[in-house]
Amino acid sequence: MRTSSNDRPVAIFGGRSNPALAQKIAESYGTTLGDLTIRDFADGEIYVHYEESIRGADLFIIQSTHPTADNWMELLLLIDAAKRASAARVTAVIPYFGYARQERKDQPRVSIAAKLMANMLTSAGIDRILTMELHASQIQGFFDVPVDHLYGSTVLIDHVRQFDLEDFVVLAPDVGGLGMARSYAKRLDVDLALIDKRRPSQNEARVMNVIGDVEDKNVIIIDDIVDTAGTLTRAAQALKDYGALRIMAACTHGLLSGPAYDRIEASPIERLIVTDTIPLKRPSDCIEVVSVSDLFAKAIRHIYTDQSVSTLFTD
């Protein structure tokens, strides 16, 4: 725990979902993680206990909420315990916000899960949310507390700039990702292309057409999430069929579920760049990880000192 000149203490704690990132964020901030006990009872029930006083603290809890759902439950318990221990303000630092892909009622009799998650965080007593690359930015409107929304492009673009961008094209793998891809293309000063695809069911995509000139070009595919990698690898194969040369991809959140690793390693994708918002299940020669720890540490400092967070990024 550190104290500022106004004698208001700041404390950073990390849940179990991504301990490596939590540690890096604390180190980048210039402090150590607070002492915290989290354990499971025999029946799977989760127990949390802050091992030091947090009374009056400006508290930041770092917890990504990728599967399993236990990560969500653990975060809610950490918030509840912090409020009951008289923390002055509790900010949930959620590098990956799970259930963000269920943000609307697009067919009858389905849950708007992202809204439910927002309701549960609010009921637990959260004062503020700090997250990165929500699948749908309108999820911020589900909250009645401040939400600071960071962008993976802040770190990924700097990394992509290290490559030779001659004859490069940025590609959106679907219409939904066009805005993000356009932002990358503008900031990298390269051309833009788009995949027109149809999705017959969840986690299944069928490439229909490539819109834009990719023949004899080097292409980087941009997306916010790579889950089973079906969309990504089908897009890469379509690009090869249309005459693209080198193919890379950059995605903020590497869920990499099910057959994702095998698909990527068997695909024309030369390199997939992801951030460490979600820990990799296993290493791969095709996958490169860029850390967002410095960006989150800066955002935490700006929140703590009541500075603008938007100065840290360009959307």
Rank of each mutant, 00 (worst) to 15 (best):
M1D: 09
R2F: 12
T3V: 14
S4D: 11
N6D: 15
N6C: 10
D7A: 14
R8F: 08
R8C: 02
G14Y: 01
G15E: 08
R16M: 07
A20E: 15
L21P: 04
A22Q: 10
Q23N: 15
I25M: 04
I25N: 01
A26H: 11
A26G: 03
A26V: 02
T31I: 02
T32I: 00
L33Q: 02
D35W: 06
D35G: 02
T37S: 13
I38L: 01
R39G: 07
D40L: 14
A42S: 13
D43A: 10
H49T: 13
H49A: 05
H49M: 03
D58R: 10
F60I: 13
I61G: 02
I62L: 04
Q63K: 08
T65N: 11
P67H: 06
D70C: 10
M73R: 02
L75Y: 08
L78N: 05
L78P: 04
A82K: 03
A85V: 10
S86F: 09
A92W: 05
I94G: 09
Y96Q: 11
F97Y: 05
P108N: 06
A113E: 07
T122R: 15
R128N: 03
A136M: 12
S137L: 04
Q138G: 13
F142N: 06
P146K: 07
D148T: 05
H149D: 12
G152T: 07
T154Y: 06
T154D: 05
T154R: 10
L156I: 03
R161C: 13
L165S: 11
E166C: 12
V170M: 15
L171P: 01
A172M: 01
D174Q: 11
V175L: 15
L178V: 14
G179I: 12
G179D: 14
M180S: 07
A181N: 11
R182T: 10
V190H: 11
V190W: 08
I195P: 00
K197T: 09
R198C: 00
R206M: 11
G212S: 08
D213P: 00
V214K: 06
K217D: 00
V219H: 00
I220L: 08
I221Q: 10
D224Y: 08
I225G: 06
I225A: 09
T228V: 05
G230Y: 04
G230Q: 00
G230W: 02
T233E: 03
R234Q: 14
A236E: 09
A238N: 07
A238D: 08
K240V: 13
K240Y: 08
Y242K: 15
G243S: 01
L245W: 06
M248D: 04
C251Y: 07
T252E: 04
G254I: 04
P259D: 09
A260M: 03
I264M: 00
E265P: 14
A266T: 11
V274K: 02
V274I: 15
T275W: 05
D276I: 12
D276A: 12
T277E: 04
C286N: 09
I287T: 02
I287Q: 00
L295T: 04
I300C: 01
I303C: 11
Y304P: 01
D306T: 07
Q307G: 08
V309L: 15
T311F: 12
T311N: 12
T314E: 14
